[in-house]
């Protein structure tokens, strides 16, 4: 407490430190450097890499609403699935341009996010959790029944994705998919980062920390939540479309709540509310799944479960939470 009474803390230095938090730090380049390095080092795994990038984008979209705004959801796959189906169905009908597909997926998912959000965001906690789950289940059943459009439980057949920008064909080795997904993730990250650092993004953390106080200082809490929910849905839709385009597959599982659950686990492993949890959790989870399922194709979930127990008991706040605690201990 001695610093509380010491005279004249440096006003300018403190305000500078506070006002410059949004500036780029050196370590923020790490994910991108690693991704570029992996392109050359792990050549046979480029297809997996592309899927990881799309999943990171998906987890990033969840972080916006869950990590920042504190909106709990188990139905985020709804938007992923809508994005995947929108771009898949378009491509079946001769509109296979990848970028057009992404745009349509974003719009479609945003629309569903806005409409469902306007209803479910009135609640919170467990009720909200149930309602988001219901939205995903409803959409999945809808996709199942609309067999003529979606292919139902057989999956969508006959997707034809044209080359990116009319030049880069999606190849068997996943080279195009890798670069394309990475580029889209990069843009998604820029958007998410900008939102998080904006006054709007800061107000989301206020909603997460103490929603009653936000009401008391006159914030339009419901509107803010709906806006970020819609943006997050659009981003999840793009992630769904990315995976659909790079694998040429869309099935009912893309809307399934199992995907939402996996996503939640990824974010918790990485650390929610810190923007980079998605970049750690999604690759860790997907690489672990890839390895574990090779060892034992049936029981690999057991190892994931064990890993989760470890995280919850020993590493609150995920990997990033752990790193933060180490750094703080180092400072003291």
């Amino acid at each position: 407490m001695s610093d509380a009474t010491s005279p004249g803390p440096d006003r300018k230095a403190q305000i500078d430190a506070f006002a410059r938090r949004h500036r780029f730090k050196w370590w923020e380049a790490l994910p991108w450097l690693l991704a570029i390095g992996a392109f050359f080092i792990f050549e046979p795994y480029r297809a997996l890499g592309a899927q990881i990038f799309a999943t990171v984008l998906f987890a990033l979209s969840l972080d916006l609403i869950m990590g920042y705004a504190g909106i709990l959801t188990l139905g985020h796959s709804a938007f992923f699935g809508v994005g995947a189906y929108v771009c898949g169905v378009l491509s079946v009908h001769g509109m296979g341009d990848p970028l057009l597909g992404l745009l349509a997926a974003a719009l479609g998912a945003a629309l569903v996010g806005f409409a469902s959000g306007a209803i479910v965001l009135r609640t919170s906690g467990l009720t909200l959790l149930m309602q988001t789950l219901v939205v995903a289940a409803l959409l999945q059943e809808l996709a199942n029944k609309a067999h003529s459009i979606t292919g139902g439980s057989d999956g969508l057949l006959g997707m034809k994705i044209t080359p990116v920008l009319g030049v880069f064909r999606f190849d068997l080795f996943g080279t195009t998919a890798y670069v394309y997904s990475l580029a889209v993730l990069f843009i998604g990250w820029l958007v998410a980062r900008n939102i998080v650092e904006s006054p709007f993004g800061r107000s989301l953390t206020g909603i997460r920390e103490n929603v009653n106080r936000m009401h008391a200082i006159g914030a339009p809490v419901d509107r803010r939540k709906l806006i970020v929910y819609t943006i997050s849905a659009a981003m999840a839709g793009v992630a769904g479309a990315l995976i659909a385009q790079t694998t040429s597959l869309v099935g009912l599982d893309s809307l399934g709540i199992e995907r939402s659950g996996d996503l939640l686990i990824m974010l918790i492993i990485g650390g929610p509310g810190k923007l980079y949890g998605a970049f750690i959790g999604a690759p860790l989870y997907m690489i672990a799944r890839d390895r574990f399922s090779e060892i034992n194709p049936v029981y690999w979930y057991f190892w994931i479960g064990l890993f989760m127990v470890f995280i919850v008991v020993f590493a609150r706040g995920g990997v990033l939470g752990m790193i933060e605690r180490w750094r703080e201990r180092g400072r003291r």
Binding site: Q14, F18, A19, R20, R21, H22, R23, N194, I195, E197, S198, P199, F200, G201, R202, S203, T205, G206, E209, M214, I217, G218, A219, P220, R224, I227
Partner: peptide, 27 residues
């Protein structure tokens, strides 16, 4: 969990109505 300065800055942002801005960084 937010800093003292953040608590007060959030409040002023609401008063001034700038907290709806998604684009410019808060800083």
């Amino acid at each position: 969990k937010l800093t003292v300065l953040e608590n007060v800055t959030l409040t002023i942002s609401e008063r001034e109505g700038v907290a709806n801005d998604l684009f410019r960084p808060a800083g």
